[in-house]
Amino acid sequence: MTNNRPTFVYDGDCSFCTSCAQFIERRIPTRATVIPWQFADLPALGLTVEQCEAAVQWVGRDGTTAAGPDAIALLLRDAGRIWSVAGSALGLRPIRAAAWPAYQWVADHRDLMPGGTAACAVPQNRQVNP
């Protein structure tokens, strides 16, 4: 699948995720469409519900995908200027190695993050690292 714009997909049922998406839309000048997976055409994007429940997703204009901190890195690189520096840094091997466990911890505890609610909690049986 090809698209004129990249797409960044997040969990619209999570208040913390929605707060982060609103920050992206207000502060990060990406060309990407930022959309909750619940309103996205997942088959057209080449994504599954399972992928979107597990992590944020990036779908490039050429259809390539990335998840979690790799998706965030691509979003930041797309934004240009200082954001691309942060996105490139996130792709560096030592930072990337630490980013995945940090991302997973935040995802597993998103109900405790600023803007998070009890509805954001990931059930214990769905957590990758409970």
Score class of each variant (00 low, 15 high):
83 W>A: 05
104 Q>F: 00
1 M>G: 15
61 R>A: 11
44 A>K: 12
76 L>D: 02
26 R>M: 11
129 N>D: 13
43 P>A: 06
97 A>L: 15
40 A>R: 09
130 P>S: 13
4 N>H: 09
102 A>G: 12
50 E>C: 00
62 D>W: 04
88 S>W: 13
34 V>Y: 10
97 A>N: 10
18 T>N: 07
46 G>E: 12
79 A>M: 09
89 A>F: 13
110 R>A: 02
58 W>S: 03
2 T>C: 02
66 A>V: 03
82 I>C: 04
44 A>I: 01
124 Q>N: 12
82 I>N: 07
122 V>W: 01
97 A>P: 01
20 C>K: 04
79 A>I: 08
10 Y>Q: 07
84 S>Y: 06
12 G>S: 07
58 W>R: 06
42 L>S: 10
56 V>R: 00
94 P>I: 05
90 L>T: 03
108 D>L: 00
31 R>D: 13
105 W>S: 09
81 R>K: 10
54 A>W: 01
88 S>A: 14
116 G>P: 07
53 E>F: 03
62 D>T: 09
2 T>D: 11
70 D>K: 11
57 Q>C: 12
72 I>M: 14
41 D>I: 05
47 L>A: 01
11 D>A: 09
75 L>H: 05
26 R>T: 11
12 G>Q: 09
95 I>A: 08
91 G>H: 02
3 N>I: 01
11 D>G: 09
55 A>P: 02
105 W>G: 08
127 Q>V: 00
28 I>D: 07
45 L>M: 11
25 E>N: 13
12 G>T: 09
17 C>H: 07
99 A>Q: 08
45 L>T: 09
113 M>W: 04
124 Q>V: 15
86 A>W: 10
61 R>N: 07
45 L>C: 07
